[in-house]
Write a protein that binds this DNA or RNA. Structure first.
Lengths: 347, 347
DNA sequence: CAAATTTCTTTACGCGCGCAAACATTATTT
DNA sequence: AAATAATGTTTGCGCGCGTAAAGAAATTTG
């Protein structure tokens, strides 16, 4: 090990007995060189620990191996898990992922995209803020960088979208609730930042109407990204004022539900589907903590591993096709995954 | 705006009417040039949006402006919040933070440090896995890169440590519980990956002994990083077997407590300090979700904004001193913040 | 106002690597 | 074995910027 310190590819090529351009080729794609020379390089690699200078590499390559991962809010465990999965897959494929969180703020998302552009990434997987995104800015970004939108769709932005089918979500939750009890009231934020919220509300309305039922929507006020707090406060008020028209609540998403359940507990409302229960609560997302609410939360899950995997696959295809983003004629694909009901104890 | 496309610093220097070396100086530190020339550059900057090539910059600078942020587990909202705060402060100070999560795995932490080293960062803020870290690997890393350890201390590793005083944590929780009811049993994982767990257990033992009480420790089995699940399973078993020697439970950390509270709810044990309550539960960390457990969790909080801020400050000092990491004579500083009791409803 | 000081310009080199072209060397095929 | 293809080597340029040195210009000082 380290008989001497290797300073650059020149020196490493020397000790490995292979010419520098071939070594360069190897680092670009180990399979692009003959098996025998690959072995010689990798033997040298074991005894001399050298790694090519990443800055020099990126400066000169036509296309870097950088991949950007942008999520709207990293403190949300769902996004953390998605990001983790994407990260892992990128590394396995020989890419260098950089992870960013917009922390729920439009300005930060803009800055991330700007600084990402200067990394000249091969591609970007972007779960946008959604309604609070600077759409024009996004569009300009996507003209330069192959981008897959994840989780939240923005019409026409990016080269592909991969997410869940909000209709499928709400169909399943509403169907289940109707089958087993009273029709649900839809519990949501007044000004959701999340475009999925809008789709879900609309899906709820149309499912209810298709059953010949009157949609009931309860909107709670509150700003910001701490949905749990908003759900809690809104639920406290609703319960105090007995403002809910039915005993069955369908939350737009699990984070709201987490707050709502905390409020129910505090107010002494027993939640669940058994006898002696005052309320049923269901929701959407299958948040990692939904298993640990009191009672555990019946929810409709999207398999975020599936979604993120497909997102990665789509990006890799995009990169491989190597089209100049601006001129893709292939058109924009949208991939929606169905959701599945996760029956727990709250409804 | 963009009368023409600026390709490099040469061209930008031309349109701004300033020589390239001076422009370079400006980008290195805007205050290092005369006010009048700074203005001219910034005017040009507004009409030509040019950004220096980050790879070329980093390749040639003695010291990059990169800062690494490494946390053990990003799906834990506490670390997500800390990372967010650190990120923001770094950007404000003109650095370029890169965020990494070890996802609880030793191997990933190693890889992160290796790939971080090749970014030649000016400094790194590292919340290590702790007992599962490859300590030798860490030590070697710290010889090359100025590193501030955060949240979890490893003796002698890194150039500074900033975290919370586990004694202060446990003193406060135990004192409170003793003052208001029965002595607590300490509820923890059998093989915690987290060095803080060890400190807390020891602190618990010594506080109990200092009160002339017999320490009681309940260890639950379980591997991995899903502490909530481990807490849930362990609590279910303990409750079924009536294995707890007292009605007061002090959890090593909030994530365990979240699982435990879910189990208590499911088994019908009423938790809280009022009459009619079967159990009291308290914990440590003030996890962002502690407010929404049922009942809300009495816990001892560390102010992670404070901790992360100090961590950043310490790193900046370290960078400014500009010592070669290996040869620092200044010695290693340890900064511990006291914790504060957050009284909620569970105890 | 001249002298001292600061700041800028000019010139030039180097960083570590990607990439291309011309040529030499190996495998593979007929 | 000769012809063809695949893979290497040699050589050399260029990427965009940092940095250093020497001299010119602007600013401050006395």
């Amino acid at each position: 090990m380290e008989s001497q310190k290797i300073r650059n590819m020149e020196e490493f090529a020397a000790v490995s007995g292979i010419s520098r351009p071939t070594v360069s080729k190897y680092f670009n794609d180990p399979e692009s060189v003959r098996q025998s020379t690959r072995q010689r390089i990798e033997e040298a690699l074991e005894s001399y620990d050298y790694r090519p200078n990443i800055f020099a590499m990126n400066q000169n390559r036509r296309l870097t191996k950088n991949v950007g991962i942008v999520v709207p809010y990293l403190a949300d465990p769902t996004f953390a898990e998605m990001a983790r999965n994407i990260e892992r897959r990128c590394i396995e494929a020989g890419f260098r992922p950089s992870l960013f969180s917009a922390h729920g703020e439009r300005e930060i998302e803009r800055e991330i995209l700007d600084s990402l552009r200067s990394l000249r990434p091969a591609g970007v997987i972007l779960a946008p803020l959604g309604r609070h995104s600077d759409v024009e800015h996004l569009v300009r970004f996507c003209e330069e960088v192959p981008t897959v939108l994840l989780d939240r769709n923005i019409d026409g932005v990016g080269h592909a979208f991969v997410g869940s089918d909000n209709n499928s979500f709400v169909n399943q939750s509403v169907d289940y609730l109707l089958r087993t009890g009273e029709p649900p009231v839809f519990f949501e934020m007044e000004n959701p930042k999340n475009p999925n919220s809008l789709s879900r509300r609309n899906a709820y309305i149309s499912v209810m109407e298709s059953h010949g039922l009157e949609p009931m929507i309860h909107r709670v006020r509150g700003e910001g990204w701490v949905s749990e707090e908003i759900g809690y406060q809104g639920a406290m008020r609703a319960l105090n004022e007995r403002a809910l028209p039915t005993d069955t609540i369908l939350c737009s998403n699990d984070r709201l539900a987490i707050g709502l359940l905390a409020a129910c507990y505090e107010k002494g409302y027993r939640v669940g589907r058994g006898p002696g229960c005052a309320l049923r609560v269901a929701s959407h997302d299958d948040h990692p903590y939904a298993r640990f609410t009191c009672p555990s939360l019946t929810t409709v899950g999207h398999d975020f591993v599936l979604v993120s995997n497909r997102g990665v696959d789509t990006l890799f295809e995009l990169i491989e096709r190597g089209e100049v983003p601006g001129t893709q004629a292939g058109g924009r694909t949208e991939t929606l995954f169905p959701a599945r009901l996760v029956l727990r104890l709250s409804a």
